[in-house]
Amino acid sequence: MTMGILARGALGAAVLSMTGAAYAQSGNFIGLGAGAIPVYEGSSQYRVIPVPLINYHSGNFFITPRAGLPAMGLKTSLAQDLDVGVFVGLNLGRDENDADLTKGMGDIKFHGAYGAYVEWRPGRYSLGAAYRQAARSGYGGTLELRASYAALKTEAHTVQVGVSTEWANRDAMQTWFGVTSSQAANSREGLSTYSPSSGFKSATLFTSWGYRINSDWSALTTVGVNTVLGDARDSPLNERKANVFGSVGVVYKF
């Protein structure tokens, strides 16, 4: 699957899932968009990334963003509107040359990830929790909690508003927000050592709008704001407490 290799970092991956949120219940689709996001959570520098959009379900099999990662997996229904599943996905990581503050820090390597989720969709609401674990030693895992509401549903328009938060274990916090003694020594910006603890690392508020152009094509737009929390906010890598992000795309329903 190619989606995951195009998005760097947690926020970049999350844009993939949020962009398709307004249209995910409309069946299978595939498309492409573009997103404007910070280089990493808390960075003052921005980048534009391609945003592949895919939502495919066939029986218990799916390919769709899960826990901020494009993923494929298997699901089953425990009750009406209540699903659980397992998934595998990809994360490219972070290149040390992505931003001024990360130069000399070394790369966060390309790696796989796996996890499990539970999702409940009563009416217009959607509540979910998902845990993903990096399939690379020392990179850690994160737990995402998300809630959203379909504020508008017509034949042509779907508007969804939502909130999410992510908890990261110690390894994940150290990977993305920590600075080891060797990294501090190599840092071109003279960063000091920093060892964050596990805890909630970010919270996001977003809105997704899906516009049905015709029976086959739709346009998707997402805007939101992400803020770092706890030890992530105190990291010497953190330049901004909050970042805005957005994306636009077009999908074909099949």
Rank of each mutant, 00 (worst) to 15 (best):
R188Y: 14
V179H: 10
K253N: 13
Y252I: 01
Q25G: 15
E41V: 14
K153Q: 15
N91P: 12
A130R: 01
W167A: 00
G128N: 07
N97P: 13
A172Q: 04
N243S: 11
I213W: 13
M173I: 09
F110A: 09
M72C: 08
G9V: 04
I54Q: 05
L220E: 09
V248C: 06
S58W: 05
A242C: 06
V248D: 00
S182W: 01
T175E: 05
M173T: 11
S218P: 10
V223R: 08
K75S: 10
G224C: 10
Y23T: 06
F62H: 09
V228N: 08
A151R: 09
N226V: 05
A203H: 05
A7K: 07
S197P: 00
R170F: 03
T222V: 15
P236S: 12
Y40W: 03
P50V: 04
M3I: 14
S148N: 04
A185I: 13
R121I: 02
A151I: 09
P50Q: 08
R240G: 04
G93M: 09
S187L: 10
S77L: 11
W120L: 02
A219T: 12
G93D: 10
I37M: 11
S187K: 11
D95S: 14
A67Y: 02
K241T: 15
S148I: 07
E144C: 02
L152G: 02
E189W: 03
A232I: 11
G93R: 13
A150E: 11
F245L: 01
A168D: 01
R136A: 15
Q183Y: 08
I30P: 05
S247Y: 08
W120E: 00
R132E: 09
T222N: 14
H57W: 08
P52E: 07
G128A: 05
A219C: 03
R212P: 06
D95F: 11
G224M: 12
A116Y: 05
R132S: 14
R132H: 12
A113P: 09
D171V: 12
Y40M: 10
E41H: 05
A13D: 11
G93V: 15
G68L: 08
S164I: 01
V179R: 08
P65F: 07
L53E: 10
W167I: 00
